[in-house]
Write a protein that binds this DNA or RNA. Structure first.
Length: 384
RNA sequence: CGGGGCGUAGCGCAGUCCGGUUAGCGCGCAUGGUUUGGGACCAUGAGGUCCUCGGUUCGAAUCCGAGCGCCCCGACCA
């Protein structure tokens, strides 16, 4: 990508309403734009980060053997009447009546829909256990949206649901999910702790939440539950065991706030100058900075390195804007590119500077070796 | 949902208390020139339903009323 043509509107000033560091930096770095209270647009660079997080979540969920599906955001209220949660959810659930006067809702969560799916298709112990998940937009009409995308009314969530024949199976799957969650959060560059939690309106006997480190008081990025038979009993999701006896499915559910991870990653990876992305989720891993775009040699060298990085499959950005070097460095700090290749006066001597955003460590490298150097560095530091 | 605050150019703000030239400032934007290793400078310029509707007044960004939007504190919260 050429910065001069890329839509990433950086700014010296944060919007008036931004309070937390992640909110301020996401706005200033041109990652998000507020559309309405608690409703945000992910601008191109922000969306790249979101998709990078999504890919990590997907990779680790697939590793556990869970299968991805996609349920509707639009749901009939009838399923919620069955589970008994229609009234419980209150005004947080966005409801409306369709043209046939049926009460519909925008899903705040999907226990009802998944239980409906499973009861239709899973009737024998031979088909079990099964774990299904999706990555999807959830809707919750929060009384008070805040902290940018952290508490928003529309947000991206990964929700997984497991169905077992017995408690032991649930314990095993729960443990696998717990491990996968640790890999996901670590892989996204978060420092986190696991705490026993109140299960709230979701219900169940036991749950733990994953809380990311950071200043932001809404800390929770993941929550896993041993639900038991609460939904399978109210919604009549039964199976036959090996003796032919009808039993309720034993359920677990596992949620990750995918969009929240983005904010949490910033909370945990920034300094006074801006974001310092973990390599794994950075929108672009490398920024190539020609210090002066008027100089033919500098610009050409920068372009050559940029292209060489591209041909090695590395997502790179070329700051080809005709701006002062100082302004480019400030933007590079703000936007948090993990690796910078700075092409300046030493290009005439065949050297460029490679700087690592985290810790501001610099090395002079032969121009011809720059792309390989970056490649090796990223390979060695790909997970953080 | 209770309490408080705010709404003026794309963004951040001043002006409002105490009504009165052509509504300003910084950033950003456009044009030209000089610059280019830590948010450069000069010149010129464009850009405004002062949230909306109604009222008071010779006159309203400013006063009054209603509405809408947004934020903060609290309660709430996969």
């Amino acid at each position: 990508m050429r910065w001069s043509r890329y839509f990433m509107p950086t700014s010296k000033e944060a919007p008036r309403d931004a309070e937390t560091i992640s909110h301020k930096l996401m706005s200033r770095a041109g990652l998000i734009d507020k559309t309405s209270s608690g409703v945000y647009t992910y601008l191109p660079a922000g969306y790249r980060v979101l998709r990078n997080v999504e890919a990590i979540v997907r990779r680790e969920m697939d590793r556990t053997g869970a299968m991805e599906l996609l349920m509707p955001a639009l749901q009939p209220s009838s399923l919620w009447k069955e589970s008994g949660r229609l009234d419980k959810m209150g005004d947080e659930m966005i409801r409306f009546t369709d043209r046939h006067d049926r009460l519909m809702l925008f899903g705040p969560t999907h226990e009802e829909v998944i239980t409906d799916i499973v009861r239709k298709y899973f009737s024998s112990w031979k088909q079990l256990p099964v774990t299904l998940y999706q990555i999807q937009t959830k809707f919750r009409d929060e009384m008070r949206p805040r902290f940018g995308i952290v508490r928003s009314r529309e947000f991206l969530m990964k929700d997984a649901y497991s169905f077992e024949v017995d408690q032991q199976g649930l314990d095993e799957t729960y443990g696998k999910m717990r491990e996968a969650y640790c890999r996901i959060f670590t892989g996204c560059g978060l420092t986190f702790s696991i705490q026993q939690a109140d299960s709230g309106v979701i219900g169940g006997k036991f749950s733990e939440e994953f809380v990311a480190q950071g200043e932001c008081p809404e800390l929770e990025v993941g929550h896993i539950f041993k639900l038991g038979t609460q939904y399978s009993e109210s919604m009549k999701a039964f199976f036959r065991d090996s003796s032919g006896t009808e039993k309720p499915l034993i359920m677990g559910c596992y949620g990750i706030g995918v969009s929240r991870i983005v904010a949490a990653a910033i909370e945990g990876n920034h300094d006074q100058k801006g974001i310092s992305w973990p390599v794994s989720i950075a929108p672009f891993k490398v920024l190539v900075i020609p210090s002066n775009t008027e100089s033919g040699q500098i610009l050409e060298t920068a372009q050559a390195i940029y292209q060489s990085l591209g041909s090695r499959g590395i997502s790179a950005m070329l700051d080809d804007r005709n701006q002062s070097a100082g302004m480019k460095f400030a933007d590079a700090d703000l936007c948090g590119f993990p690796v910078w290749v700075i092409v300046g006066k030493k290009a005439a001597e065949g050297k460029v500077e490679i700087r690592i955003r985290k810790g501001s460590v610099s090395s002079d490298v032969e121009t011809g070796n720059a792309a390989r150097w970056v490649c090796d560095f990223l390979e060695a530091n790909g997970q953080s």
